[in-house]
Structure formats: C-alpha cells, structure tokens
Design a protein around this nucleic acid. Sequence first.
DNA 1: AGCCCATCCTGTCCGC
DNA 2: TGCGGACAGGATGGGC
Length: 275
Amino acid sequence: MPELPEVETVVSGLRSRLEGRRVRDLVFLSAHLERKQPASALNPVIYRGKTVQKIWRRGKMIIFSFSGGCGLLIHLKMTGQLYLCPPEQPLDKHTHARMTFYGLGSELRFRDVRKFGFYNCLRLPEIMSRVEAELGPEPLELDFPEFQHLLQKHGGKKIKGWLLDQKIIAGIGNIYSDEILFRSGIRPDRPAGRLSLVETRKLYRAMKSVLNKAIELRGSSISDYVDSAGEKGQFQQKHLVYDREGQPCRRCRQAIIERKKIAGRSSFFCPYCQK
DNA sequence: AGCCCATCCTGTCCGC
DNA sequence: TGCGGACAGGATGGGC
C-alpha cells in the first residue's frame, strides 16, 4: 500500500527521468479510469506536445504540472503502480493508462489491479485547490508546537485514527502508523489528546525517523508496491509489528504481537512494549 | 466530534 | 481439485 515513503520514492524516480520532457501522447486503456474523471476533466489529447514542468508529492497524491497550465492528479490508493518501462513490454488487463514522450526510450504506465486509484486530467489550479482542501500538513515539515496543537485539536480521536486521518496529517497509512506507534511505545487505541509530553515527543520523533528511514530504504513492498523503475522497496525488512500477528515481539522477545481493529483498520501492536 | 458501516474492486486464502 | 465466501484496504459519505 503506497504511503508517503513509497509515493516519495516513485516521485523522485519519475522527476529525474521526466521533468523537461515533451509529451507525445496520453492514452487511456480502460474505460474504468476515465469514468473516475471529474466533470471538469481535460481531454487527454490536450497533453500532446506539452512539456513536463514539475512532478511532486503532497501526502499520498502525485501531481504533475505541464506547460499551458495542465496538470495530472494521481492517487495510487492500495494497488496502484506508476512506472517507466520499455514500450514493447506487454500490456496486461490491469494497465489503465500510458504516456509516451519524445526522445525517451521508456513510457509511463499506470497499473492498478483493484482499480481504487485515480488518474485525473485537470488544470493545475483546480488540482492545487482540491489538494489543499483535502490534506493536512506534511508530517516531515511539521514543527513540534503545531504537532502538539493538532493532537489537542482532535484529542478525542484514537491516536491510530489520528495518524491515519489525511486531513489532520497527510501521507501516513496503515503500515507506518503501526510502526510509528510501536516505536513510540504507545497503544493504537489511546486518545490523541491524552498523551503525556514525553509520549508526544516520542511520537513526533518516531514519525519523522520512521518516514525518513523508509524513504531511505525506498519504501515497503508488501503486496503490489514497486517504484518508478518497477523495483521493490526494502523497508518491509525493518517492520517491527505490521503483519506480525502471533509472532514474538522483536523488542521484548516475549510478548506476542496482537492484532485488533482500531479506527476501522487492522492494527498490530505489542501488548507489553506499548502502553 | 468521532465512530461504525458500506462502498469501490479483485486477488488470495481458507474451509468444505 | 474446485468452488464459494470472507477478507484486505485508502478514502468517502451517510447515519448515529
């Protein structure tokens, strides 16, 4: 499931290959993805001849800007993939869009088995206003006082749900919320507003260190995730609780990792290390 | 305000 | 071996 570190890895790979390139064509391969376009969507034909100006990330959203004010807003959701590959590589039924470029031996493909993701052709100002309306601040740019303020502002929420809420903080999903809470020694069902100062500091530091370390290791490949070159990440080897139900805790080596549904999501935690 | 549930979708896994 | 049902999950939207 691509979360902030996976999306960051994809974006940095695409950026180095695509920024400054001129689009030859954008083609949708399945009607499904087109049905997810909002009413204000641009005709894909408009992208022909446009130059990729910038590619960046906001939370888990991927944004492209092109010359002429066009943009792309892409979300990989759970099984989406956005990668460069040789044009002759066979297409399968899960590949929903392809973009080709002048002078580049690779094409960009959007593939998504479960079809939860979207790939929206929109004007850049519309993308920016949508993204800013829907997303809270970036966790890696958040300072400690603002972090504390957000904990109090949504203090009734369980901390797991708090971390997952994209409107509070943008980019954290189910894997990293569990890994962050384990490293903070905090149980996922604790109310966000009732953490001690020491716990709040631990949580803040763990959030940054887990996300940064995961970016360094190019993300976690649990099911479908691959980067822009089709390569898997390595952070799954560092997971301490996620998907480890029934196995001994890697820290205390005694307690057994539990799994509970919290805030509607499977949550893994150590009943001994997390208070 | 915040929780729970259903929804979208398909591959995988489990039990019979 | 094969089939059917449960399940997973990011985000949204409705109901309580």
